[in-house]
């Protein structure tokens, strides 16, 4: 039957969120140390760092819960 053994879509979503979280976290740390680099409104809140961490956590949860062979397919 088609669908047997198919990786869940949530696993793909977890993967891309994990990759994006890491990139955004590193980018935000890097630019936080550059005095004049790409300043935005409310820069002092370091939204990029927090958003990066959030994506890493959510992505990680999806990767674990929906890893191939573990989760129900969808």
């Amino acid at each position: 039957m088609v669908g047997e053994g198919r990786i869940s879509i949530w696993f793909f979503i977890g993967s891309i969120l994990e990759v994006y979280g890491i990139i955004i976290f590193i980018a935000s740390i890097y630019y936080a140390g550059v005095p004049d680099g790409h300043k935005v409104v409310l820069d002092n809140l370091h939204a990029g760092i927090w958003w990066g961490i959030l994506l890493i956590i959510i992505g990680g949860m999806y990767l674990i819960i929906f890893r191939p062979g573990k989760a129900k397919k969808s």
């Binding site: 976290f25 980018a27 630019y31 935005v40 409104v41 939204a47 990029g48």
Partner: peptide, 12 residues
């Protein structure tokens, strides 16, 4: 987007 999003976030 340009007002609030720093590099990385802007890409997203």
């Amino acid at each position: 987007l340009a007002r609030y999003l720093s590099p990385g976030l802007l890409g997203l």
